[in-house]
Nucleic acid binder design. Structure first.
Lengths: 209, 209
DNA sequence: GAAAAAGATTGAATGAGTTCATTTTTTTAG
DNA sequence: CTAAAAAAATGAACTCATTCAATCTTTTTC
């Protein structure tokens, strides 16, 4: 049996991730102690550290899975966006936002964001940053697609505009998770308002409402 | 002598803030122990906690002072901005960036940002957020001023545009402090590029180069 | 199949932030 | 001026993330 060790490893890894995600959601990140996670996963505290560098790493791992799904959910919209620029932007952005709280609480997002800022060189933070970059690219691609279709004036730097729109929607999402009382609808409404001017200005004249 | 207690309090507060800022710059945030800060400030560890809720609070206090100066430095530019839209934006943004590393290291910025995300309800985090809001308003005011002057087309929602531009410059600054090797010049160049499309589109036709 | 090597697990020890019952200092009341 | 009350300072004790030397398990070697 060549893979006994590998199989045990994969199994332990899964148990740790499940135990941690469950506890983070149930009692919050800070209150979830490594000792508790280890106990639920049926391993020792020391073993936890053979699988993850520190407590934050496992949270960022959970967040990465969620972002990956968000990215997937955005693809069909980039493939076949609504004709009007503002509608296309809003469709993609709201898709992101709707997916964001599926598995993660606001507190988990806050903690993950804090870690990715504070320890930018840890492997999982790099992964988080890379996923953010791919989301940003997706927005730029949507704008590029609209330009090819003729809905956006030619000559505009779609990458620059895409970065600005993404950075804005990202910051607004950060504000959203920082405020435990803000509902998703408020976030969506605000961001839609912020995007309206740039969408209008970019639109080819004949297509502007 | 009515104010003995008040005077001692102010004095201790100053000593703590000075000791902490010095240690954060000299050895970094993590390596600066409360015990060391207390020793330099000539107080006990317990007393530290009578003045600040936790280690992070004192860092956010130091950052707040810096942001206040940045805000001050932006005023003259909003009062009397360059005529071209892109030049005005770049002047204000670069002013912000140039001031940002006067007293604070990148590591201090990272830690402060992480704390303000993770503990949004602590008093000093609220202060930090409020200052960010005032910076955002300053950008919107610059754009409003340019619109009044006729450099920007009437009818554009200057607040929405200002928020988007600010959120973008803020995110880019975050990326800058996350990357220990990125020079200020790269940050400025990137952000200038990102702002060019929106500046061009907003500009009144006769004033576009 | 046994012994040696390699790889993992373990949990007690470490270290730093934070708490809190006690002590000290300052103010107020009589 | 003295005693009681209020406010502040103190540092030992506590908690929890993290480490690491010892132990155990799996794989390889012959």
């Amino acid at each position: 049996m060549a893979g006994l060790r590998a199989k045990q490893k994969a199994d332990r890894n899964r148990r740790i991730l499940e135990a941690a995600t469950r506890l983070f959601r149930e009692v919050g990140y800070d209150a979830a102690r490594i000792e508790d996670i280890a106990q639920i996963a049926e391993i020792s505290v020391g073993t936890f550290y053979n699988y993850y560098e520190n407590k934050g790493d496992i949270l960022v791992a959970a967040v990465s899975m969620e972002v990956e799904e968000v990215l997937e959910a955005g693809k069909p919209i980039v493939e076949n966006p609504p004709p009007m620029v503002i509608d296309a932007l809003v469709a993609l952005i709201n898709q992101y936002y709707d997916h964001s709280l599926f598995y993660l609480s606001k507190e988990m997002w806050r903690t993950a964001m804090a870690i990715s800022i504070q320890q930018p060189d840890s492997p999982f933070s790099k992964r988080y940053t890379e996923l953010d970059g791919r989301l940003c690219d997706q927005v730029s691609m949507l704008i590029g697609k609209l330009q090819l279709r003729g809905a956006i004036m030619p000559g505009i730097d779609t990458v620059a505009v895409g970065q600005m729109i993404f950075n804005n929607l990202n910051t607004m999402f950060t504000e959203f998770v920082r405020d435990e009382t803000m509902p998703l609808e408020t976030l969506k409404r605000e961001v839609t308002r912020q995007n309206r001017p740039i969408a209008t200005m970019m639109s080819s004249p004949k297509l502007t409402s």
